[in-house]
């Protein structure tokens, strides 16, 4: 056990699964370091932010290879490889590029098991970076997990820490269905204790990072850290929060969310994806429909405005939810109860 970064945790998960299972291969743009070109330097990059670095050197060109800049072709190839016996992990670089290969994911990979009467398996993982806060502008900053969550047949993972990332990626690689694994690009240098041994974290099982009596906060990916920060500050003022990290948006651990809301009676949802039809609206609908009687205050969503992610640093900062905004949302649902009692 030692401290590892989010980046190292993901690299270690890939390496250990490649060691364990020869069917696991990696493909994507620049993940091997341009060895496909004549002037390329072998293993120079490891993907744009260095996540796969070292794997080409360890496993060679047959199992780690660069693809043309054509998402439609290599994601399609990965889907085919999965359907015919390999366990590919394809890196989509920025999730914003999914537009180029959505048919391969949505109409092919996600449908095979269902349309072939359960006889086809597609053990595919698509890794991609998501999220704002990196100054990467509107075409490289989106948090598109709701888009995939919407499609039956896909599993969608949004890890919130290095420990979570390693265990969930190993689970993703061992899963027989297509899994979209989304990494917040701002988190790659986050560090925490991560076991050296392989381990897997089951899908659809939420993690409670804080347990409290007053307010339930459901947060996704990087937002879990902000929610924890807000919860710790609120704790000092006597407001105790439960923080739920669902880990996967599909399947979603709705039982845990409902259970916690029934205990606390108040719900704040933190989601950095665009606010219409996102995870916040999904969870809000779930709770409004199934735990309405438990609610002591309106559900609050802490989400960005419905606009492309701005490039300007000051605007991007305003765009993204943060601990202060979560804190004030929690205070507002707490205050709501008071106003009602006074009346």
């Amino acid at each position: 056990m030692s401290k590892k970064s989010f980046r190292q945790a993901i690299n270690e998960a890939l390496r250990q699964e490649m060691q364990r299972d020869p069917r696991v291969i990696l493909m994507g743009e620049d993940i091997a370091g341009g060895q496909g070109g004549s002037a390329g330097v072998v293993d120079a990059w490891g993907g744009v932010l260095g996540v796969t670095k070292g794997l080409y050197t360890e496993f060679g060109a047959e199992r780690v290879f660069d693809t043309p800049i054509s998402e439609a072709s290599y994601i399609g190839a990965a889907v085919g490889a999965a359907a015919t016996g390999l366990r590919p992990v394809a890196e989509l670089m920025f999730v914003d590029f999914v537009g180029c290969c959505l048919d391969q994911i949505m109409n092919q990979a996600a449908k095979f098991r269902y349309m072939f009467g359960g006889k086809a398996r597609t053990p595919l993982v698509i890794r991609a970076m998501y999220g704002a806060g990196f100054n990467a502008a509107a075409q490289h900053s989106q948090a598109l997990y709701p888009l995939f969550t919407h499609i039956p047949g896909l599993k969608v993972v949004v890890p919130s820490s290095p420990y979570e990332a390693k265990g969930l990626l190993i689970e993703a690689i061992r899963d027989d269905d297509p899994v979209i694994f989304l990494e917040n690009k701002v988190m790659y240098d986050d560090e925490e204790e991560v076991p050296d041994e392989p381990y897997s974290i089951p899908f659809g099982e939420a993690n409670l990072t804080r347990e409290g009596d007053d307010v339930t906060i459901v947060a996704f990916g990087r937002m879990v850290n902000f929610a924890n920060e807000a919860a710790d500050r609120l704790e000092k003022d006597g407001i105790s929060c439960t923080v739920i990290d669902p880990r996967t948006t599909s399947p979603l651990d709705s039982a845990t969310i409902l259970e916690c809301v029934e205990d606390t009676g108040r719900l704040v949802i933190v989601d950095e994806s665009s606010p219409r039809c996102n995870m916040a609206t999904d969870v809000a609908a779930l709770v409004a429909e199934q735990a309405f009687d438990a609610l002591k205050a309106p559900i609050r969503q802490v989400v960005p405005p419905h606009t492309p992610v701005p490039f300007a640093t000051v605007l991007e900062k305003l765009y993204l939810p943060d601990a202060a905004r979560i804190e004030s949302a929690v205070r507002s649902v707490m205050a709501y109860k008071k106003a009602k009692q006074d009346a």
Partner: peptide, 14 residues
């Protein structure tokens, strides 16, 4: 909490 969490993490190891 931490003790419980540590045991859950141990049990997840291959």
């Amino acid at each position: 909490r931490k003790m419980v969490e540590d045991i859950i993490r141990f049990k997840r190891l291959d």
